[in-house]
């Protein structure tokens, strides 16, 4: 690889670098534009320039977005629901994967296929019937209306990843534990679970990425602000402030911020996790 690089002309290297740069600009410039416009006033937007230099930086846009966008409540809801969903997915998928991969029973293959089927079902086809079910059970506008489908649609992937990692965990440890008189549940949660650390990270990241930005189910099953999640800051705002563009830009930037900041900080772990999940899945 090194030698191939050395042989090449410096010009072609520059061209390749420019290709990377151009695509990076395409990917990131809309977000810079968003940030820029969020700090201007609405009147300044009608320019023909690409970016505006605001006469006065309008921090007020953010203040409005923060308060009227219910930012804190929705952020809290998002965090709570996502952490719970991740916890449920991990525990349930470890248990199910262990039962299907390690335990000896006739139906293990069938149950495994059944649970993995969820991966093929389009989420949005369940919106209509689930709405009926949750209404009938009075689950709409409760945390369960989000938690149940979020767990359900992340579970197959979780189980798949846990299962494939579990196969690489040596059985000898468990055998030794059995001889020492360890029960099944303790084997799973005290001995095997720590060995699955890498896949737990991957499953957590994938589950989080899947559900953090979800709003279709949320907007179908929720009508009061009580459990609404972060995307609603944006959804509700655009109606309310339809003519005040600058504030709309601010609420979008604000709502995007938590995920982007966390991503930049944990960038290495997240890319590794996604890569592992995607390649295995």
């Amino acid at each position: 690889m090194e030698q191939a690089g050395k042989k090449k002309h410096p010009i072609s290297k520059v061209i390749l670098f420019i290709v990377l740069l151009v695509i990076a600009v395409i990917q990131i410039f809309p977000l810079i534009w968003l940030l820029d416009f969020s700090l201007a006033s609405s009147n300044e937007m009608f320019t023909s320039g690409l970016l505006i230099i605001p006469e006065k930086i309008q921090w007020g846009n953010y203040a409005k977005a923060f308060v009227d966008g219910n930012f804190l409540l929705y952020l809290k809801n998002s965090l709570l629901i996502n952490f719970l969903a991740v916890a449920f997915v991990i525990v349930i998928s470890i248990m199910a994967a262990f039962a299907c991969k390690r335990m000896q029973w006739k139906l293990s293959g069938l149950v495994q296929t059944l649970l993995l089927m969820g991966m093929m079902i389009p989420i949005h086809a369940t919106l209509l019937p689930n709405y009926k079910i949750y209404s009938a059970l009075h689950l709409t506008d409760t945390i369960w209306a989000l938690l149940i489908p979020y767990v359900a649609f992340s579970l197959p992937q979780g189980m798949f990843l846990m299962g494939s990692f579990l196969e690489s965990v040596p059985k000898e440890l468990e055998e030794a534990a059995v001889i020492d008189g360890c029960g099944i549940y303790r084997i799973i949660f005290i001995i095997v679970t720590p060995l699955l650390k890498a896949s737990i990270t991957t499953v957590s990241i994938m589950t989080f990425l899947n559900n953090w930005n979800e709003f279709m189910m949320a907007s179908t099953y929720l009508s009061t602000p009580k459990w609404k999640t972060l995307p609603f800051s944006v959804l509700e705002f655009t109606g309310e402030y339809s003519s005040n563009y600058a504030v709309q830009f601010a609420v979008m930037a604000l709502t995007a911020a938590p995920a982007v900041i966390v991503y930049i900080i944990l960038n290495k772990h997240i890319t590794k996790g996604v890569a592992m999940g995607a390649v295995k899945g």
């Binding site: 968003l34 953090w212 709003f215 979008m252 709502t255 982007v260 991503y263 890319t271």
Partner: peptide
């Protein structure tokens, strides 16, 4: 570069859709 390319992926579709409406 890897970080920059991936950033749009962590942003909610709700934001992406409205942002592009503006674009």
């Amino acid at each position: 570069f890897r970080c920059v390319y991936f950033i749009p992926n962590v942003i909610s579709v709700a934001i992406i859709a409205y942002l592009w409406k503006f674009i």
